[in-house]
Structures are given as C-alpha cells and as structure tokens.
C-alpha cells in the first residue's frame, strides 16, 4: 500500500468535538498531522496561505455542517474556487449531529464530498475513510 503523508484538517465550531475527533484520529495512528480550525473562515485562510508553500496542504478534511456564520455547505462553495493544486489531492467528509435527508442529498451531490457522517465519529468509519 502506498504510504503517503497524511494530513487531516478538522473544521468545527465546537471545541469539544474538535478535541474528541482529533484524539480519535490520533489514536488510529493513520494520520501524520492534524490541523484544527474552529471556523470555515479560519480554514480558508489557512488553505490560501499554503498556495506558495505547498507543504501543509491537507489530504483529508472533516467538515462540520452546522456552524455559525459560514456553515459547511458555504465553506464548500468557497473551497471549490480554490486553486486545483490544493483541492486535487484532498478529499472531504462532512459531519453532522443530525442527519437531514436534504443535507444527505446536498452532500452527495457535491463532487468534493465523499461521505456524510453522523456524529459521533467511530474508529471504523475513520478506518474506512483513511485506511
């Protein structure tokens, strides 16, 4: 199996869930580095800053849907306008504590999103996505 450097970005406004999910991810030992962003804005800023120096581009993003100001779907609108050099090597899974049928459809329709997951995140789901 290809052992590519794995860098995961977590975007969630909920501090506790950020803590839980980053801990869970580090326990799987599948990931080399975790970037934590507490808003869509912060994540976009981070990504834009990597344009020159491509070192810190994430390979996988876990994106919460329900966030104040910019929600997960709004983030995706901005995300798809980013340079291909960033988005081409990165996949996104969305997270939500309540799965709305409309959200499922919307997420599935987005080419960047590979899965919509219901919180709490489990190790098995993570293994399936990152393994």
């Amino acid at each position: 199996m290809q052992t590519r450097f794995k860098r995961v970005m977590l975007i969630d406004d909920n501090e506790i869930d950020l803590k839980i999910n980053s801990k869970l991810i580090s326990l799987t030992k599948l990931v080399d580095e975790i970037i934590i962003c507490s808003s869509g804005d912060e994540a976009l800023n981070f990504l834009n800053n990597q344009l020159e120096n491509k070192k810190l581009i994430p390979t996988f993003i876990l994106l919460d849907i329900q966030m104040p100001e910019m929600d997960g779907f709004e983030f995706l609108m901005h995300y798809k306008k980013l340079s291909k050099s960033i988005t081409d090597n990165c996949t996104i899974a969305m997270l939500s504590s309540t799965l709305d049928f409309g959200d499922i459809k919307k997420a599935e329709a987005n080419p960047h999103v590979i899965k919509l997951l219901k919180k709490p995140l489990t190790t098995n789901e993570l293994l399936a996505l990152l393994g």
Binding site: N14, I16, T98, K119, T122
Partner: peptide, 22 residues
C-alpha cells in the same frame, strides 16, 4: 431543540468511545 440537544449529547458519546479506546 432536538438538534441542540443532540449536539452536546453526541460529544458525551464520543468521549465514552474514547474512554473505551484508551
């Protein structure tokens, strides 16, 4: 209300999962 109630509850369940993993 259901959504607001479930969000923190899910965190609790997530913590219990971590406790198990560790």
């Amino acid at each position: 209300i259901s959504h607001e109630l479930r969000a923190p509850l899910v965190s609790v369940i997530g913590i219990v999962n971590l406790v198990k993993l560790e």
